[in-house]
Design a protein around this nucleic acid. Sequence first.
DNA 1: ACGTTATAGTTACATGTGAAACTAATTGCA
DNA 2: TGCAATTAGTTTCACATGTAACTATAACGT
Lengths: 157, 157
Amino acid sequence: MSNPRNPAPAGAEHAPLELEHFLPYRLSILSNTVSQAIADDYQRRYDLSVTEWRVMAVLARFHGLSAREVAERTLMDKVAVSRALARLVSAGRVHRDTHDGDKRRSVLSLTEAGWLIHDDVAPMARAREREVLEKLDQEERQWLTRILDKLQPVSQK
Amino acid sequence: MSNPRNPAPAGAEHAPLELEHFLPYRLSILSNTVSQAIADDYQRRYDLSVTEWRVMAVLARFHGLSAREVAERTLMDKVAVSRALARLVSAGRVHRDTHDGDKRRSVLSLTEAGWLIHDDVAPMARAREREVLEKLDQEERQWLTRILDKLQPVSQK
DNA sequence: ACGTTATAGTTACATGTGAAACTAATTGCA
DNA sequence: TGCAATTAGTTTCACATGTAACTATAACGT
C-alpha cells in the first residue's frame, strides 16, 4: 500500500504531524536532555533526586519555609514535596521543626550536611547550565530569556 | 536564626541557586505545562498517552516502520515503544505484521480506527501549539526556532 | 555448516508520580 | 463555646517509566 520508511504520499489527506517541528515535542526532548545531564552529576554522587535537589535549593534561599511554601516555590505538588522531605530529613540533610503557633506546619531548614551538599551541587548545576548556554551567542541568550518570560505561566509570587 | 519566607542574608556565603532563573528548571516547567495542556485534550477522550500519541504520529507519516525505527524517530526507548505498541495494537489502532525477510522485525501501520483518531487529534495538537505560539510575536517565534535548533541534541536522521 | 555475536522485541523488577482518601490541627461562625 | 469547613501534611493505590535480564531470530567469521 505504501513503501516503508518513506513519508506518506504527498497528496495524503491525513496531514500528519511532524514531530521534529512540533514545539511541545521539542521542548520535552530538550528539557529532558538538559535536566538529565545535570542530574547525572549529583544523582549518583549523593543519591539525590531532582525533586530533592529542588527542595534543597529553595531551602537554601528561603529559611524556615513550611512544606506548602516549598511546594509553591518549586511548583511541585505537596505529595512530591512531602516525599522528598521525608527522604531529606531521614538522610540528615534537612531539619524539620514544628511551627510555634501552628502545630500542623513544619519549619524547614538545611542541616550542616545539607549545606555541604548544596555548596557542592549548586556550582556544578550552574556550570552545566553555562555549558548549555554556551551554544548560544549573547543575542540569542537574551532572546531566550525574553521568550521564556513570555511563555512561562504565572511563576511564583 | 533567620526569618521565614525571606531570602537568606545578603552576605551569605552559600550562593543559593535561583530556580526561577535557572534554565533547566524553566524548561522543565514550560515543557510540562505545554505538553499537559495538549495531552489533556486527547488523553481523556481517547485514553491515549503521550507516548502512544507520538507513536501514532510517526506511523501516520512513515508507513511500515519497525518498532525500532519508531523508537529512533520518537527518541523514546524501545521498551516504551514496545509498551505503547502493545496497547495500540490491542486497542485496534495499530496493525502489526511480521517482516517478510526478518521474523524479528515488525511492520507497523495505523488501522482505519487509528487513522480516525489521528485525524482528530493532529489538528487539535496543532491548534494548541498555535495558542502557545500566539504569545510570541513573529520575530520572537523565529528566534525561538533558531535557538531550539542550536540547543537541540542531534535530532533523528 | 556452525558457533559466536548482534539485533528486535518483550518481560520483570524496582522506583517514581499523581489523584484521592485520610489524619491532625486550626479557623470561622452560629 | 462547639461544630462545620479549611488547611498542612501523609498514606495509599493505580499506573507510568527506566534498567536489566531474557527470548527469538539473523548476521558474521571461520
